[in-house]
Structures are given as C-alpha cells and as structure tokens.
Design a protein around this nucleic acid. Sequence first.
DNA 1: TAAGCGTGGGA
DNA 2: TTCCCAAGCTT
Length: 354
Amino acid sequence: MRDHDSDTQPLSQTLLEWYDQHARSLPWRVSPADRAAGIWPDPYRIWLSEVMLQQTTVAAVKDYFHRFTTRWPTVADLATAPDADVMGEWAGLGYYARARNLLKCARVVASDHCGVFPDTYDGLIALPGIGPYTAAAISAIAFDRQETVLDGNVERVMARLYDIHTPLPAAKSELKTKAAALTSAARPGDHAQAVMDLGATICTPRNPACGICPWRSPCAARLAGTAAELPKKTPKKPKPTRLGYIYLARSKDGNWLLEQRPDKGLLGGMLGWPGSDWNDAPQPAPPFEAEWQDLGAEVRHTFTHFHLILQVMLAELPDDYIPNASQLVMPRHDFKPSDLPTVMRKAFELWKGR
DNA sequence: TAAGCGTGGGA
DNA sequence: TTCCCAAGCTT
C-alpha cells in the first residue's frame, strides 16, 4: 500500500541529499552533519539571525550578528542592555522596528519565560517581532518541529516547481499549501533551511541555475520555460520624492546637538539630526536662531516608499544651549557616527568632507 | 487588505 | 541611473 505522500517524499529526499552536500556555512547554522550527530542550534542565535534576516541579505547580516552575539552572548544579556546601546548597534541595518521589538522580545523571554525561548509555533508567534515566517523558522530550525516556512525564497521555489502564475501576494496561501505538502517529517529543520538555501543559491530571482538544480526534473516551470518570469507580482506604486532640511549644530568644543526620534514611525527610536518635515515644500525649522550656513551639498537617500533630498545646514551650538525633551548634546568623545541610521550618517559624512 | 517601514548590492 | 529585491512584521 502506497501512502499519500508517495509522490512528494522523493522530492524532499532529493532536496535533503542536495543540502547534505551543498549547505552553506553560516555563523548561526548547525551543519547537517553536526545536526545528525545530535548537536542542536542555540535558539537565541537562531532567533537573532532570523529577525536580522527579515528582508535583509545574509551578506548584510553577518557582521551585525557577530557584534551582537559578542556583546550579548545570551538572551539574558540582551534583555538587560540599555535601549540606546541596542539601537546604536542596529544602526545601518534598517527596519528599526525590528530592533525595538528585539529588545521587547528579549525582556519578555527573560521575565516571563525564565530566559528560555518557547519551543512551539504558538508560543513563539505571541512574542514581539515574531510573525508567521519567523515562528515557523525558529520552531523548525531550533526545535526540529515540522512547521512550514514561507519566505520569499520558498514562494519563488514553489511558484516555479508548480508553475503557478497567480501574482503575489494573492498566491501566498496556495504556495504555502504546496510547501507544506513537501515538508520533511524526518528532518524538518534541515528541510526548512534546504528549501531556503535552494532559493537563495540556485532558484534565484534572476538567471536561475536550473541546470544544476536538484529539482530540475520535476520542475513544471522549467518544463514550460516560464521559470525566469515567476513568481508574478502585483505592480508597485512609484516612489514620490520628498524634500527637507536638517541642521548640524556643533559647539566650540566639538559637541553635537542630536535628537532622539519618537519610537513610532520612520527611523523610530533612532538618533538623528534636528530637521524639518519631509514633504513637497518643507518649511525651514532650525532648532535655534543662528546664521545657518548651507553646506551646499545635498543628502540623497531612498527609503522603502519615497526618495528624499535633504538640504544640510550648519551652525555653531551655543555653550549655554538647553536641549528640549527630545534633544541631547552629545559630548564629542561619545559621538559615534555608526550609531546613526544611514541617512543621518550621510549628512555627517558630508560635513566631514566639506 | 494595504500601507508603512531601510539599506546595499546587482543587473 | 534606475529598478528590483532580500530568511517580514505591525497596524
């Protein structure tokens, strides 16, 4: 008697055999050989890597992961870190709500879970910053539970394997059903990492390497010649361009006037320079009256949903200046440009090279 | 459901 | 230069 996955079982086995030979070595990963020998990953490192990897490339994450785990080796260490230290260490990686939720999550795990991560999907998804993908990924990778991960890689691989032309995001549930039917019961964690590795290294968005793909034979899109145009996506809206002013104020001693941005919204919780609103025709909004000098060069930066052009203004910060509630005067030796989000760091670089 | 939310690299 | 996009989450 053949069971119901007599068709799909060979697919997951083919994938795992490929993964055993081609698994990438990553700082947070336990190799398939080590995993087979009974070695388990550290849930803290899996969680941290998965949050960092949300919409972010492995190449961009590596150095941040190393700095975070060196500075905060356990979730208990991270839970007791000051907010400003964590936000500063995250600066440059983007999507700063992730850093705020990271700290919230660490503190919940430390206080409500005795410093031990929940080992189920339901327990994990209840935590800040952990959504459907991340909960499934941690369950599978750190605890070897049979959960289905559906990220951009898996969506692309499934759309091609089954030649599905429904555009994303409408196709998500259909793609997840396909991915779930393939999930290995024997090695769920390795399977999750394998299908994502396949998407990242073989079944790439452009120029997929179909010739060396372990699933080249069953792939419907390869047969149909449609692999390169899948997955279909609903068209994106064009990005508007917004304008603004920012103000660099430096005292005679070299101290800087900075502001702590509000927790919600763009660059929430990060340090930045005082500035105007960003829109079509911003009003100048200097933090104090002075002869502001136009640095003469613009900061150009592109966010997820708009382009930004900033006029950079410079003045001397009076020694008796009293910062308001959101501002701070940063002593020159405490100021680290690397604590700033990239758009703000660009303004500083402009001043440095003036 | 759709919009808001960063950044850097590759084509 | 411009566009796409990379292991998504929150509201």
